[in-house]
Amino acid sequence: MSTNGMTSWAVDLKDVAAVYPFQGAEFIMFIAGLAFWLWWHWAQMRMEATEIRHEMDADASGAEAKKAIDRY
């Protein structure tokens, strides 16, 4: 058993192409990668929404905002 089909390097390299594991599953890996990327946007936006909500709830008087502006 070998995850890339090779069990030794007793080969002529001119006859060898891809050597990564699980060849044949590239499209499934692509779907997994795509899902990971889409998950990231979903999770990031959720996180940012929470952060903005917290910041909206903070500093009702605007005093801290004035200090932040003053600090540049």
């Binding site: 058993m1 070998s2 995850t3 890339n4 090779m6 069990t7 030794s8 390097w9 007793a10 594991p21």
Partner: peptide, 16 residues
Amino acid sequence: FVLWGQPSSPFEGYAT
């Protein structure tokens, strides 16, 4: 796990 069974070396007699 991911590279299980692949040759570790180009030399004969090495564990995979």
